[in-house]
Design a binder for these strands. Structure first.
Lengths: 162, 162
DNA sequence: CAGTATCCCCCCTGATACTG
DNA sequence: CAGTATCAGGGGGGATACTG
């Protein structure tokens, strides 16, 4: 996928992560994969995405190593798209978005889907960030230690100035 | 910001969250805000974003209630853009992206910025999701309990079919 | 400094039709 | 079903100039 600017080489991990899966559809596909969808048509129907776009996105995610193609579980001639380890480790990204969405993108009492612990069937707890010694941390307890003064993006990399 | 398709009304919190802050620049702006940037020019220089785009994005984030404008701390005639509570609670989204980026978007020994606990100056721990009873959970321990069979997006909401 | 205004291009997106 | 091919459009995105 060609982009205007590339964040693939910036020193900030957030930038690189967004470069990989920060586009409009990718995380939704990953979310659906967590929900058990595997087939082209399942993604297409569930997302309402155009086939061409879906093809591009799936290929991109496969190239990135987030999804992999495996022989279809139902024995058909096609492939299933399943999460790799790299893809499964996007779990907390999806969960963090889910929790924020639940907290701030719904009106009171407006129903939404919920993430449940399969063992107990009860909703999961809140995500937490802790210090090495176990103290819970919020944004005000942390700083980014920058390792170099490099700019956030690699200036002019994407397009020669006219 | 006008989009082709709107996810603002889907029942999945992930979709709604992405509808709000899932575009190319918004989370980068939020990340910079966590890093202490407040001024228009700071964002503009650090992101390398065009001024017009930045204006649009900042306004969108203010409209969403993620950022708010406050009188400039240096007494100048302009405004500072600071995170609201809603914005600060995107912290874990940014952290999850950061940790995934650190794990999968850098070569071995390639330097990257790190999030440190200000008190100890040491890198923070890993994000964790736990069940209500305290057990750590991974993606395979959870399921989404869907509350209605509504489609992921509101079909045809954005554009009448031709 | 902090935007606004304008121009323009390219790519993303979506729709439709087609193939094995 | 699982894509590929093709086309049209619209808007995101960048550069530049301008304003208070």
């Amino acid at each position: 996928m060609v982009k205007r600017v590339s964040l693939a080489t910036v020193s900030c991990p957030v930038g690189r992560a967004l470069d990989a899966i920060g586009d409009w559809w990718s995380l939704l596909i990953v979310r659906d994969a967590f929900d058990g969808l595997r087939r082209f048509s399942e993604f297409q129907k569930n997302l309402g995405i155009a086939k061409g776009i879906l093809t591009t996105r799936l290929r991109n995610l496969v190239d990135l190593g987030v999804l992999e193609m495996v022989p279809a579980s139902d024995g058909s001639a096609y492939q299933d798209y399943v999460l790799t380890k790299k893809g499964r480790e996007l779990f907390l990204v999806v969960v963090s978005l889910r929790q924020w969405g639940e907290d701030y993108c719904f009106k009171r009492d407006e129903p939404h889907s919920a993430l449940v612990d399969t063992t107990s069937g009860r909703p999961v707890g809140r995500l937490e960030l802790r210090a090495r010694d176990g103290r819970a941390l919020t944004s005000s307890d942390t700083t980014v230690r920058k390792l170099d003064p490099q700019r956030t993006r690699n200036a002019k990399a994407a397009r020669p100035s006219r």
